[in-house]
Nucleic acid binder design. Structure first.
Lengths: 214, 214
DNA sequence: AAAAATATCTACCTGCTAGTAGTTTTTACA
DNA sequence: TGTAAAAACTACTAGCAGGTAGATATTTTT
């Protein structure tokens, strides 16, 4: 799901060519999701009204209802970004990084850490507000999270089996790495002037040290 | 602030003796705070109604208003427990543990970790819902948090200065230890069948390893 | 045991918010 | 440029939730 947008207007651009209509719909959906994630991040899902979201975009409430079934559907879209992008990055690293287990661990922490920082507001909203999803959306999002956790756990177990990681850290380290997704935003924002690169490199070193794989 | 209560009724016990009235008031205040923290923890502050809280206690809404000024005041009481107990434990350890710096670090992680697990619901609500406090309450609670962070930072700096801790981990480790307060509840509940003791002992070892003070 | 004081409840108000019906504006196309 | 279709808006409803006034029940005191 692409979310980054560059224009700052919802006025339909005068473009020629076929099939740009669905693109423009997606563009507006993304603008809504982006604005909502920002507001939900700052004030919380239950404290934000749809009028708040509409105002932020200089549109009206019924506008939102022509792109989303209800308020909860907007939250579901945010949560989906929050977990699915991290999952996609994880799977990409696991599919393409074929070095040592410690190299794989470092790359996972680096790439997942980066996406969590890039999509900080989505990730935090996903964590904090997931409980307000409908039963169906909740199950769908939870499956993605379980897939994420499972693949992290497998990676760690393989490293332990190979002898590269200390035996006694399994399975806590798996929880720890999974915990990055919960923890980075708090940490990153509370560590003041540090750049994302500094924070991530520290996390990579910390993960290796915890795994006994320096 | 004492919060643990044993009775399961709000009916005034038939006790004799002077000055038990204020004790009974405190007892009821604690019951309200306890019930509210549980509901806020599970469903979120903004999604919980005062009727929910009252029902949980088998009383009515005006009952709550005779002990608290408004809904936000209940949240403030919860937040105060969430941070002030951790702060008290920290200060107690720092005042009485005079061994090596690594012994102090281990004891801080152990004792603060224990209180965070014991008061899990309060701590989580404090973190997640603090932004809904009034400006005055927010400032008051934030001061406690800053005091906590500051003392953790000092402890780490002293350990680094003494040579017991690795130089390059300062000041990230300070954020990490402070982050325990954010992180333990998620971790503890997602680590399945593990006992509080196991989780805490792992945290102590992890903190020492991160500090380079094993 | 009656009166005073305290504690709790019933019943209500007011403002807000998710969601909708139907009208108006804008766009696409001939 | 005129007409149909699509997009967006104005104006509304229904229900809920924080907060309160005044009545009732309970406890304490004399």
């Amino acid at each position: 799901m692409s979310v980054a947008v560059s224009s700052d207007s919802l006025i339909r651009p005068r473009v020629s060519g076929a099939s740009l209509k669905s693109e423009f719909v997606a563009f507006k959906v993304n603008r809504i999701v982006e604005a909502a994630s920002h507001l939900f991040y700052e004030r919380g899902y239950s404290s934000c009204t749809l009028d708040n979201v509409a105002n932020q975009l200089s549109v009206t409430k019924p506008f939102l209802y022509s792109y989303f079934k209800n308020k909860e559907a907007i939250l579901a879209a945010i949560c989906e970004v929050g977990i699915s992008e991290a999952l996609a990055v994880l799977e990409d690293v696991l599919a393409h990084e074929h070095g040592s287990h410690r190299a794989r661990l470092a790359e996972v922490v680096r790439k997942v850490g980066q996406i969590v920082i890039d999509r900080q507001e989505y990730v935090v909203v996903y964590q904090r507000e997931m409980k307000h999803l409908s039963a169906d959306d909740y199950k769908r999002i939870l499956r993605l999270r379980h897939s994420f956790d499972h693949q992290i756990g497998e990676m760690i177990r393989e490293g332990v089996a190979s002898g590269e990681f200390r035996e006694d850290i399994d399975p806590f380290i798996a929880v720890w790495i999974g915990g990055l997704i919960s923890w980075i935003p708090t940490w990153y924002s509370s560590s003041g002037q540090r750049s994302a690169e500094e924070v991530i490199e520290y996390l990579v070193q910390a993960a290796l040290r915890l795994a006994g794989a320096e």
